[in-house]
Amino acid sequence: MPAPKNTLKQAMAEGRLLRGLWLALGSETVTDIAGRAGFDWCLIDGEHGPWDPTGIRRQLMVLAGTPTAAVVRVPVGEAWVLKQALDLGAQTIMVPMINSTAEAKAAVAACRYPPQGIRGNGGATMRAGGYGGIADYSASANDEVCVIVQAESRAAMADLAGIASVEGVDCVFIGPADLGADMGFRDNLAAPELWEEITRGIKVITDAGKAAGIIVSPAMAPRMEAAGITFLGLGSDSNVLAENLSALARGAR
């Protein structure tokens, strides 16, 4: 029995528009609700959300019972962290703060078993391989792992063509907040110069034949879709909850 088919990776390669939600709260209940809401993917955030492998495993198990694909963002691109996220059962990984072609290559290598990479083999101890129940997991897992790298700095944007050309990178995701801060627009993310650079970057990514991703407000989504974004984050569980609770409270006064 081979590793499960990664349908999100396949849809990404086909150029389909894939809309999703950030999960920052670490709540299994919220994850369950989000997974049933109709998104193409939900991202369990271990960078700015809690990096709690036990909690992330539970969220992955919850999403497995919904129609929505799971993505896990690790806190750093260290090989041992990536190995742990994959062993928990994540097949699609987002790696933050990739600033160079070399860093992108290292991230891909950490997500693949030898000889294509350096991922350590946990055998029958890990959820990814069904605790030994998926006999051909190690032989087939490499083909089903989807790697999303984040370009979030001027250095990354300068080397974007190289990053996007790395074999095994499925998507390059531009982080507007960190990129804006690095460009001097931390407190003015509406700066035209920032979005001109992002639009340029999207073309570089798509010209390399890779999916381009970003997270923006729903109002900004049509502009990003027109620019070529196909992996589109539409907000986070924390923001949706906070905004709607505040609106409800204001309406009750």
Score class of each variant (00 low, 15 high):
residue 225 E to G: 03
residue 231 F to K: 05
residue 233 G to E: 06
residue 190 A to D: 14
residue 208 A to N: 06
residue 234 L to Y: 08
residue 170 D to T: 00
residue 211 A to Y: 02
residue 165 S to Y: 05
residue 198 I to F: 07
residue 199 T to H: 12
residue 237 D to E: 09
residue 212 A to Q: 09
residue 186 R to W: 03
residue 163 I to A: 09
residue 172 V to M: 07
residue 203 K to E: 11
residue 201 G to Y: 03
residue 177 A to Y: 12
residue 221 A to I: 08
residue 211 A to M: 09
residue 177 A to F: 12
residue 200 R to W: 05
residue 199 T to Y: 05
residue 181 A to L: 07
residue 186 R to A: 15
residue 178 D to F: 02
residue 222 P to R: 05
residue 163 I to M: 09
residue 169 V to E: 05
residue 229 I to M: 13
residue 165 S to H: 09
residue 235 G to H: 10
residue 181 A to M: 12
residue 170 D to A: 06
residue 225 E to K: 14
residue 196 E to Q: 13
residue 239 N to V: 14
residue 204 V to A: 04
residue 228 G to Y: 10
residue 168 G to E: 03
residue 175 G to R: 07
residue 211 A to D: 03
residue 194 L to T: 02
residue 202 I to Y: 03
residue 229 I to Y: 00
residue 220 M to E: 15
residue 189 L to I: 09
residue 232 L to N: 10
residue 199 T to L: 00
residue 177 A to Q: 06
residue 192 P to Y: 05
residue 225 E to Y: 08
residue 193 E to G: 00
residue 215 I to C: 14
residue 169 V to H: 05
residue 175 G to M: 09
residue 172 V to L: 02
residue 163 I to D: 06
residue 190 A to C: 01
residue 217 S to N: 13
residue 211 A to L: 05
residue 229 I to H: 02
residue 220 M to S: 14
residue 192 P to Q: 02
residue 166 V to I: 08
residue 219 A to R: 13
residue 182 D to T: 11
residue 176 P to Y: 03
residue 197 E to G: 01
residue 178 D to E: 10
residue 201 G to V: 05
residue 211 A to W: 04
residue 175 G to E: 12
residue 198 I to W: 07
residue 213 G to K: 11
residue 235 G to Q: 05
residue 236 S to E: 03
residue 181 A to T: 06
residue 198 I to R: 03
